[in-house]
Write a protein that binds this DNA or RNA. Sequence first.
DNA 1: CATATAACTTCCTTGAAGAAAGTCACTTGG
DNA 2: CCAAGTGACTTTCTTCAAGGAAGTTATATG
Lengths: 166, 166
Amino acid sequence: MPLRSDWSGEVCPIRRSLDVLGDGWVLLIVRDVLQGHGRFDELRQNLGIADAVLSRRLRTMVEAGLLTRVDYADGGRTRQGYAATEAAAELLPILQQLAVWGERHTAMPDESGHMALIHDTCGHETTQGQVCSACGEVLVAEQMTWVKPWAGVRTSLVPAGVLGDA
Amino acid sequence: MPLRSDWSGEVCPIRRSLDVLGDGWVLLIVRDVLQGHGRFDELRQNLGIADAVLSRRLRTMVEAGLLTRVDYADGGRTRQGYAATEAAAELLPILQQLAVWGERHTAMPDESGHMALIHDTCGHETTQGQVCSACGEVLVAEQMTWVKPWAGVRTSLVPAGVLGDA
DNA sequence: CATATAACTTCCTTGAAGAAAGTCACTTGG
DNA sequence: CCAAGTGACTTTCTTCAAGGAAGTTATATG
């Protein structure tokens, strides 16, 4: 008896999505992988997640078609990381809307600051997660930069299938 | 030691949102409450959830500002149900985008059919969750009707604070 | 009175999260 | 050659949460 039942055969598409996505770790992993941070040690560090939990999530996300294994060179050897599939990249609006919602409805800590979503194509910030509020275009991951003032960085999102530079 | 740590003080707004929302049951409850189905027995039946799990979720969602308790008349007595807050209503784009994503990326069962998202204001179906793909307006819950062919019903979403008719 | 309904709460079993340690496959430096 | 380090996991053990089932309380109604 699994802790939560299998929703993959449900008639409601929202519920079928939540079978895969209705878990905080999954969406956080997609968040990081879209930023190119798809190595096991990067994810473990960024997320503060237990090894075993991360390993289990990565496996199920590969099986569910959200992630693919990608080779990368590290010194003289080849290692493996994870990149987002097209399916995962299409979660961008949900992630960005979570950012917008979070800034409106959760308590912002002092060291946080405003996470701006920059649409690189038109160069403006969008206040909507799916369609650019400045120019009206539908947003895709590789045309986005996320401004994270708490870390003093701007991160350009990577296309599906790509593992970013460390 | 809770099974999953507290993300409410995180610097990333996505992660703060997932502290509240990163759970399949929470989003399914919002889905049903936005359709006016906010009574305990309705939720239990629609969701196929254990009483204790539902009760716990409802309590935490009220505390988190997603739901409010609402009185309703049943025969000669007053009972209580749950309505969405404005914060929950603002999850509409996420829910609708989950529907869109689910139809594209999960296996549709035979008895499911296409869940159309109708923007009542312009009368057309939208293929985007946040902005109407037909007329360009930002979508809000009380202007939406969800077509659920597997149940042969069209459900108009209710405004925040409202418990729909049974 | 008995029955039904709604909205929970409690009990018990089992799966999952998380801390910590371990394993394996390599590089690299002494 | 060996020791140390790194990356990507796996395993062990403890504790929490999901879920099935039963119970409780506050009312109607016949």
